[in-house]
Simulated scan of single mutants.
Amino acid sequence: MNAPYDHEALWLKAKLFLNRAMDNDEARSFDEQAMWASLALELLAKAALARASPLLIAVPTEDGMNVLIALGLIGGTARFESVPAKTLYSRCEKAFKPFSKAEAGKISQARNEYLHGVSAGFTLIPEAAWWPRYWAQAVIVVAACDKEIEDLVGDSRATLVRDHLDQNKKNVEHRTEMLLERARQRRAQYDAGTLPARVAGEWQPGQLLTAGLSHSQEEPCPACGRQGVIEGEDVSDVDTQYERIDEDYEVIVTLTVDSEFFSCPHCGLVLDNYQLLEQAGIQPTFEAEGDDSDIPYEGDYGND
């Protein structure tokens, strides 16, 4: 019997569910297909993390039971409990760029509403738009498993998946251009004094639209060229330099931060995910000033 944290077993189960999701049987509705696909995405995320370490999917408890099971120190009939989808997707976003916990979370929320809520439909998003967005996330965790799309769905269906991925790329391009053009138009209307009252009530130049993430830096706006703000939460590198001042040393800490959110107070442009930022030409990382608390703690050495 396979261990519940065995990444290969999780992969095979995801493969089974996705083949059900892509079944051409006319009796299987889109709602049912999407449900199986959403379950498969959670399994793929779990498999990708478990492949790195089973500890990444173990629920921490006071007695450490799940961690001990994941480490192989407890076997037999002990029950292993894995973390929920929300935690899986949060960890995947940090570990497997550019996976989006927000996009994956929408899929899980729609599934939960479909199974436990009063709605009879899986999602308000049309089927033709849902699959491209789904595969944009799934293909990232497939790669994190060191697998190819063909390994998951077979050669005959891989072409369909790539068509969905191409469509998602076009959708991102169109959405990015739409947001940029709308921001340019909004600023032009303001400068000309023709901005509709309703829009003026929602936005005025100088209004902060930031997300309040931990780190930020000025960044030229791809719509109007003025200075906007790029923000991020996750630090991918810490550079520490020491500068001598008289008899003392001053530490200079520079952080490399993953770009997550851009906003411009001058035209109202907001780009709120990695794909939009990339398409708009904003760099995937930026530098921010840190302090002593950002320096990684290396622990104590010696036996005293």
Score class of each variant (00 low, 15 high):
61 T>I: 00
62 E>K: 11
63 D>T: 06
63 D>E: 08
64 G>M: 06
65 M>Q: 13
66 N>V: 07
68 L>W: 09
71 L>R: 14
72 G>F: 11
72 G>N: 11
74 I>D: 01
74 I>V: 15
75 G>Y: 13
77 T>K: 14
80 F>T: 02
80 F>C: 02
81 E>G: 01
84 P>Y: 06
84 P>F: 09
84 P>M: 08
85 A>W: 08
85 A>Y: 12
85 A>V: 10
86 K>I: 10
87 T>K: 09
87 T>D: 10
88 L>V: 09
88 L>E: 06
88 L>H: 04
88 L>Y: 07
89 Y>M: 07
90 S>A: 13
91 R>N: 01
91 R>E: 04
91 R>V: 00
92 C>S: 13
93 E>H: 03
95 A>L: 12
96 F>R: 04
96 F>H: 03
97 K>W: 06
99 F>H: 10
99 F>P: 05
103 E>H: 11
105 G>C: 08
106 K>N: 15
107 I>S: 08
107 I>Q: 07
107 I>Y: 07
109 Q>V: 12
110 A>T: 03
110 A>Y: 04
112 N>F: 07
112 N>E: 14
118 V>I: 15
121 G>N: 09
121 G>W: 05
122 F>H: 12
123 T>A: 11
124 L>K: 07
125 I>M: 07
126 P>W: 05
126 P>R: 08
